[in-house]
């Protein structure tokens, strides 16, 4: 009995130190470093192949360091006429910027209404948005969407890949949450008492307050839409593609020329990597904030 009471505090102290759940063991660090290396490797590999000659790209054992042919390969990608790579890159920039800008505007407007205004049917309408967020409309509705575009004469044109993606329930949901959090109800009421109209409140009170939320939404929308593949592949022509469709064409027509394909691929992720380097902190922060709210 006495022995137990004597030894207990000492053991507890040692155990507590060893069992601290937030202590990073060397194994944890090693695992994290390994994960980061694994995350970087395919991108590194893309650069290695993109900077080699076509013959070197299929060397066994594989080359592990970048070569000196990147500039030459870029010139070759641009010169590959049937891939329409420059058009694809330009189109993707136009489409993605337009979609991002519009989604942010539409979502902040609706988010303000849902987050801070009272109107009949508010809960029902907001609920309907949440439910439809679960339906992958762009995959499910391809057939009628395509027929719609045929009837409008829009197949092969950029509005065909812009308009369907302006529908973004997640954006409305995110901005509703953000407005509720960032815009105090009292501020809206005070502006009303001062005689401000709803649109004036939106412009002068809401927009400045929700700017960080807009940035998160813009980044996510940009990344999501840059990636879009199935719908552009269906509705656009090979002569007027987005960059993803252009790459699919490169892989289909020049499937053995990896130096060429990888250079195109590297160019296609360049805008995303620039965005990530510039806004990485906000992307991490935005994802984490969004996750806790959802």
């Amino acid at each position: 009995m006495t022995t137990i009471t004597q030894t207990r505090p000492r053991v507890a102290g040692r155990v507590r130190d060893r069992r601290d759940p937030f202590r990073a063991t060397p194994l944890t660090k090693a695992a994290l470093i390994f994960t980061v290396l694994l995350s970087i490797f395919p991108i590194y590999w893309m650069i290695v192949i993109a900077s080699r000659t076509t013959a070197q790209a299929v060397d066994v054992p594989p080359p592990l360091l970048p070569g000196g042919n990147l500039g030459e390969n870029i010139a070759r990608v641009f010169a590959t006429e049937d891939a329409h790579f420059v058009t694809g890159l330009t189109n993707s920039l136009i489409v993605t910027s337009t979609v991002t800008f519009s989604v942010v505007v539409i979502s902040t407007l609706a988010g303000f209404a849902f987050g801070r205004l009272r109107f009949r049917g508010r809960n029902l309408l907001l609920g309907s948005i949440l439910i439809t967020m679960m339906v992958p409309i762009q995959q499910m509705g391809v057939v009628p969407l395509y027929q719609l575009m045929v009837n409008l004469g829009w197949t092969g044109s950029l509005q065909a890949v812009i308009l369907p993606f302006l529908l973004n329930g997640f954006g409305v949901f995110l901005m509703t949450q953000y407005t509720e959090q960032a815009v105090p109800q009292e501020l809206v009421e005070a502006a009303r008492v001062d005689g401000a109209s709803t649109m004036r409140i939106y412009w002068n009170v809401v927009l400045p307050a929700v700017r960080p939320g807009m940035a998160v939404l813009a980044l996510q929308t940009f990344m999501l839409n840059w990636n879009e593949f199935m719908w552009p592949l269906i509705v656009l022509t090979p002569e007027n593609p987005t960059v993803q469709v252009s790459i699919a064409f490169l892989t289909g027509q020049h499937s053995t020329d990896y130096a060429l394909i990888f250079t195109g691929t590297a160019l296609s992720v360049l805008p995303l990597i620039i965005v990530f380097i510039a806004f990485g902190r906000q992307i991490v922060g935005g994802l984490m904030e969004g996750a806790v709210k959802a």
Binding site: T35, V36, S39, A248, V284
Partner: peptide, 30 residues
């Protein structure tokens, strides 16, 4: 693992997110 006390937290967080900023098409090609 990321939740432990560790130096360079932002580095590791951004590191594991790098794959997200490549495009799906690029991943598939590589």
């Amino acid at each position: 693992a990321l939740n432990k006390r560790i130096r360079g937290r932002l580095f590791f967080r951004m590191g594991v997110l790098i794959p997200l900023v490549t495009s799906i098409v690029a991943v598939a090609v590589v």
